[in-house]
């Protein structure tokens, strides 16, 4: 007769496995929870934090731009007010340094000023290639009048509305007792 000896602890391994099952489940759930938290931090909070930081920078730049524009507007307004109060002086400034040569107007003014000083304008000539880098135009003007009145003539040119720089003055006595005066002048445009 064959006798089967059944060990007394035949179910112990199985029972140990059974006993471990809940513990394994807990480990699994905990691992899944940790993985979920890590994924949430990586794909949820991190991009959100980066966006928040970038938005903050953008906002700060926009505030700077706004401040700059406000300062600019305030400055323009204050300067505009000042300029409006100085319109007469500004007109004079534009006459002194006009944008275009406006030689015709200058000649008209000069003829009148010369006549006041007792001189007659004989010739008015723009020297060739006379425009320099500073916007200066060289002119040569010939007058006839009396020697004693030359200071008055020169003063009229230097104090005219249009800014003019005298380069040289030539005088030659005439047979009739008068004087020919030739003045080289530079007028400027801007």
């Amino acid at each position: 007769m064959i006798e089967f000896k059944i060990p007394k602890d035949i179910g112990a391994t199985y029972q140990r496995e059974i006993a471990r099952k809940p513990e394994n489940l807990v480990r699994l759930y905990v691992s899944l929870a940790v993985a979920a938290v890590v994924l949430f931090v990586i794909f949820g909070i991190r991009p959100l934090a980066i966006t928040a930081a970038q938005n903050g920078k953008f906002l700060a730049e926009l505030r700077d731009i706004k401040l700059g524009l406000e300062t600019k507007v305030a400055k323009i307004e204050s300067e505009s007010e000042k300029i409006n109060g100085l319109s007469a002086e500004i007109d004079l400034l534009y006459k002194k340094l006009p944008e275009r040569p406006e030689l015709e107007e200058y000649l008209q003014e000069l003829v009148l000023d010369a006549a006041d000083a007792g001189f007659v304008v004989q010739r008015f000539r723009q020297q060739e290639g006379s425009e320099d880098s500073q916007g200066g135009i060289s002119l040569e003007i010939e007058f006839t009048g009396s020697l004693d009145s030359i200071p008055q003539l020169v003063g009229a040119i230097e104090n005219a509305e249009r800014f003019a720089e005298i380069r040289d003055v030539r005088t030659t006595a005439r047979e009739d007792g008068g004087t020919d005066v030739r003045i080289s002048v530079v007028v400027y445009t801007l």
Partner: peptide
């Protein structure tokens, strides 16, 4: 204009 005029006036020799 003001700057240019001031510069030109400072350079001008009064005749």
């Amino acid at each position: 204009r003001t700057d240019s005029l001031q510069r030109l006036e400072s350079q001008r020799v009064e005749y």
